[in-house]
Amino acid sequence: MIVWRAIAAAILLVTGPALLAGEIPPDARRSGYSFMGPDTRAMQDDDTSNPGMLFVLDGEALWGKKMGDAGKACADCHGDARSSMRSVAARYPAFDKTLARPVTLDQRINLCRANHQQATPLPYESRDLLALSAYVAHQSRGIPITAGDDPQLKPFVDQGRDLFMQREGQLNLACTNCHDDNFDKRLAGAPVTQAQPTGYPLYRLEWQTLGSIERRLRSCMSGVRAQAYDYGSPELVALELYLMSRARGLPMETPAVRP
C-alpha cells in the first residue's frame, strides 16, 4: 500500500489535480473480475453459462416492444441498439440539460418511458428495468469508460468523491477505507475489491439474480450499519458517477458475474 501511495503521490505531482492521496492511479485500476476465482470468471466469460445473458435477451425483446400510451417501442426512436446504443452506458451517469443534474442509465430509461412512450416508470430493481439496462449496457461491453468527462458534471463527481471518503454507520467506515486502502485483502473470507463499477447491472451469485450498482452500494452501506440512501437519490447517483469517473479507461463488462 505504501508503494501505491508513493505512486499516487508521484502522479499527483506530475499530472496535477485529478488524483487525491490514497486514490488508485490509472494503471493500477482493476475490475472486480481480477479478484475472482477461475470458476466465476469462466461463468462470466462464456455467454452460454453467464446467467446475466438471460436478462440481456429479455431486454432485447423489450427494446422492440411497443409500450405506453404513445404505442412506441425503444426501437422506433433508436433503431438497432447494436449501433445506436454502442458505448452509451460507458458515459453514464450523464448530464441532463433539462434537469440540470446527472441521470443514471436506469433513470434515462424511465425518462424515455415517461416523455416518449407515455408509459409508467419501471420500479428500481424490477426485472424489466434490469433487463433493459442490461441490454443497453451490453452494447458497451469492451468499451472503455468515459463517464464524468463532461465539465458540467464536475460538482457532482466531487460530491460523489466526498461521499466515498466520508466515514459513516455504526462501524464508522468509509468506502475508501476498504476499496482504496485495503483492496486485495480479505474481509472475513471475501476478497475486498477496488469497487470498480464496470459490470453493472451484474449477476451476483449471492443474490441469485441480476442487480444494479445502487443495490450493491446500498448493501455496502448496510454492511457498515449506515442508513442506506434511497434508490435514485442524488447521493447514490453522485456515488455512481464518481465510481464511473474513477474507473476511467476500464472496459465495460455488462453483464458481469460476481460472487
Binding site: 466515514r167 454507520g169 455504526q170 477505507n177 486502502d181 442508513q227
Partner: peptide, 21 residues
Amino acid sequence: IMPSYYRNDGVARVGRNFAGK
C-alpha cells in the same frame, strides 16, 4: 479502521436499528 465498540455518538448516518447504541 477498527471501530470504537463502546460509543453511542459521534458517528455519521447510523442505520435506524443501530442509532444511539
